[in-house]
Amino acid sequence: MLTTPDPANQLKKIEIEDYETLVQQVKPKPPLLKNSFWAFVVGGVICMLAQAIQNYLLSKGAGKTDAASWTSVIMIFLGALLTGIGVYNELGKIAGAGSIVPITGFSNAIVASAMEFKREGYIFGVGARIFSVAGPTLVFGFVIAVLIGAIKVFISS
């Protein structure tokens, strides 16, 4: 291993740091306040809609678990529908995380991938690529579920 720093490397490092400073000066910051506002509004409306659906189902005499499941199913359907007619991506441009985090965003990620890769056929296109964006959510969702399950087993035993 070399112990003395290579002067050429040092110089390059300083140059890169200088450049980074320049880039940060010039690059506009994302409009945080505006983005947060729209994320709050759109995300809030999606959640309110889901809550309204759930309340309606409960008022019609559905059980608590059933109402929750049906609400998810309806929201997933709405997310898929809005993706299919090309509305959800426009919503995402404005809302950012506000439309990604709710379950409709998960639906959007899957349907968007399915639509995108349809032209490569149903096996190697849709089938193979449908979870290309949503995959990480599923994988780590499963991992967390297993961990929480394990914790519950330990606590209750």
């Binding site: 993706t83 426009e90 995380a97 990604i100 968007a112 639509m115």
Partner: peptide, 17 residues
């Protein structure tokens, strides 16, 4: 877009850069 970034119908917010 589909090769370098996301599916086109995916709702993503792009930074000003």
């Amino acid at each position: 877009e589909r090769q370098f970034r996301f599916p086109t119908e995916q709702g993503v917010q792009k930074p000003p850069s």
